[in-house]
Design a protein around this nucleic acid. Structure first.
Lengths: 101, 101
DNA sequence: CGAATGGTTCGACGGTTGTCGAACTATTGC
DNA sequence: GCAATAGTTCGACAACCGTCGAACCATTCG
């Protein structure tokens, strides 16, 4: 079984989180994950006109930056905003970014 | 006299602000401007190992993104974080970004 | 005026980013 | 086992980014 290791939050850098957020597609995806619950990746890209490979690239970017975690569920993957950990490390940041919607 | 027009805050996009913040040099500069007071550009890049042209590039990026305004003072330029306007448009964002220091 | 100071602009450059299609992996269900 | 489904990985590509030096512009000051 393939693994999708989450980034170690202790060494996540603000500038990298900001870079991950600084893209229209990823910002949109993060917006869909606002409530902190896990969603199938397929659902997250509905309405966004992306190829599978491009979507996969953005999911990887989000995960590696520390913004999301991936939960493998059979052949579908759920993705979840790491809300609690992010709020602890960067208080107010996610809330401020999500307010815009 | 050369002009340095500030971006129209009404049409500043969150994603562009995030992009401007998503660079170590610019994040550092913004950190120095935290109190919202104007500072000479020269002071902002002290300690950062940058050429004049690179510094100028980052200042332009910050200004065009809407993060800063430039005030020409003789042959020196003061730069100022547009704190109030940013707080109104993106509540909590700047505070969250600056907390990290 | 002429020299020094503080910045900008331009062109070039290498590295990174976002996108794609094609091939591949893994899991489900018939 | 086999086909379908959900997603990843790889290589290629164009566009963009951050950096630099050189030339330039504007202002102060002797």
């Amino acid at each position: 079984m393939t693994e999708f290791p989450s980034a170690d939050m202790a060494q996540v850098e603000l500038v990298d989180v900001l870079r991950a957020l600084a893209d229209p597609v990823r910002l949109q995806i993060v917006g869909m994950l606002a409530d902190g619950k896990p969603y199938p990746k397929g659902d997250c890209t509905m309405g966004l006109d992306l190829t599978k490979s491009t979507a996969s690239y953005h999911f990887r970017t989000l995960r590696e930056s520390g913004l999301t975690r991936t939960i493998v569920h059979g052949r579908t993957h759920d993705i979840q905003l790491r809300r609690d950990e992010l709020d602890e490390k960067f208080p107010g940041l996610i809330e401020a970014v999500l307010r815009e919607k």
